[in-house]
Design a protein around this nucleic acid. Structure first.
Lengths: 152, 152
DNA sequence: AATCGTTTGTTTAATACTAAACAAATAGTA
DNA sequence: TACTATTTGTTTAGTATTAAACAAACGATT
């Protein structure tokens, strides 16, 4: 899907790489999102991201979750609200800093995410199975280089 | 930002590549989005995407726009609504198929997008300037390969 | 012409997401 | 101790986004 833009060779090549990267990322994430929405639990990708983060790092305040997921504070408030309604996570005021909420998984949340996560990984492995191990590594290296300009 | 997931080597390497690709794509698009929001016109990335598509392919019905932007029909309805309010695009009923709306740029919309687009490209070129021309090409190739599984 | 299945776009309800304004707690400093 | 600036989270208003239900138009067959 090349652009119709008339520019220098460098501009056109950059635009093509950018479009391909954006489309690859969006189409894979769209498919993963659809899987999640169709799963028994009907979660969104953001909700899943919070559960996954909490599973692997224990607990976290909302500021940290926002930084990890590249989302704003107001958004995190709502995602946590919705996960709390389902009884997947709980908020506790940090005794050392009463501004902060420590968010952690409930038993129910932990049970769900630890059971579901492997099949999510399976889907991702399937998506990337068209690449050789070397290509996979190179893709990771290049994306890291590009994404590194500074965080967010 | 490696994952804490305990899995096979292949799973971990795939997950790392996936996370890097997603983060690179999202952080670049976040920055572009912020630029657009701060520009005199306060556009969103989706609105911009529609204007850009219309600039380069002339006009299009909503179905085609949805396919191009990987978005659903209901979403396109709203994005076009908002662009219409600003008088950047117009809808006309397709005389050959009265179900379809032909969307095209107004003079005002065309003037804006054709003036703004080059600086948008400039931002993107800047983002990718850390890559050599060969790396850029390879990134494009790998992303295309991964994104190709089938559309959306 | 009547009918059936499809296609295009809209509406609705729910969640995501942002920026901006805000409140409460904190930390530093005078 | 009081003042000030910062930080954490919430709220609000507006747009994005989806899935699902829907209406109107289309096309093909009968």
């Amino acid at each position: 899907m090349p652009t119709h833009f008339k520019g220098t060779k460098k501009e056109i090549e950059t635009l093509n790489a950018f479009i391909k990267m954006t489309r690859a990322s969006e189409s894979i994430n769209n498919r993963l999102s659809r899987n999640l929405a169709e799963s028994c639990q009907k979660l969104t990708l953001s909700q899943f991201g919070v559960l996954e983060a909490l599973l692997h790092v224990g607990s976290s305040n909302q500021k940290e979750l926002g930084a990890k997921l590249l989302k704003t504070g107001g958004n995190i408030t709502m995602v946590i609200d919705n996960l709390e309604k389902r009884n997947y996570v709980k908020r506790e005021t940090d005794p050392n800093d009463r501004r902060a909420s420590i968010v952690s998984l409930t038993d129910e949340g932990k049970e769900f995410i630890s059971n579901y996560f492997p099949s999510h990984v399976e889907k991702i492995v399937e998506e990337f199975s068209v690449l050789t191990p070397e290509e996979l590594k190179e893709l990771g290296r290049l994306c890291k280089k590009v994404g590194m300009k500074e965080n967010n």
